[in-house]
């Protein structure tokens, strides 16, 4: 897919991800090289005060990476920045959303976020994509 046009203020089509599973957390831990056991081992998670395993923040960021790449093609992504503000647990359903803030000098500046099934923003940030003039 080639770079596309973006209109300022445009609300971008959403990406609804499948429910997060424990198997997915195990696969993500292996594929990413993240050895933190709070994502895969309930005993470890409880020992540090959590009520069970939590998803990797980077998995939610990976969803947003998929989202922004789907908008203009994987080669169009110039920047992606997020803040992790809420915990994500197995069973949660994340929806990726975005709004075009500005288009300048061939770059579209987006606000993007992932929200859970209760509408809480768990990962929030911005992205820059190459845009067609």
């Amino acid at each position: 897919m080639d770079a596309r046009e973006f209109r300022e203020g445009e609300e971008l089509r959403v990406l609804v991800k499948e429910p997060i599973t424990k198997v997915q957390l195990l696969r993500y831990a292996g594929a990413s090289g993240d050895d933190n056991l709070i994502h895969v081992d309930s005993d470890t998670a409880r020992a540090v005060g959590l009520d069970g395993v939590i998803a990797h923040g980077m998995l939610s960021m990976g969803f947003l990476g998929q989202y922004v790449a789907s908008l203009a093609g994987p080669a169009a992504v110039r920047r992606l920045r997020v803040r992790f503000s809420g915990m994500v647990r197995p069973g949660d359903v994340l929806t990726c959303r975005g709004v075009v803030k500005e288009t300048r000098d061939g770059i579209a500046h987006l606000e993007v976020w992932a929200e859970n099934q209760r509408g809480e923003r768990v990962t929030h940030g911005d992205a820059e994509l190459l845009a067609r003039a």
Binding site: L37, I38, T44, A47, M58, R79, L80, R83, F84
Partner: peptide
């Protein structure tokens, strides 16, 4: 690692 939380992440390409 079990006491590490991820606050923010940014990539530029």
């Amino acid at each position: 690692l079990s006491r590490v939380l991820h606050g923010e992440e940014e990539y530029t390409y």
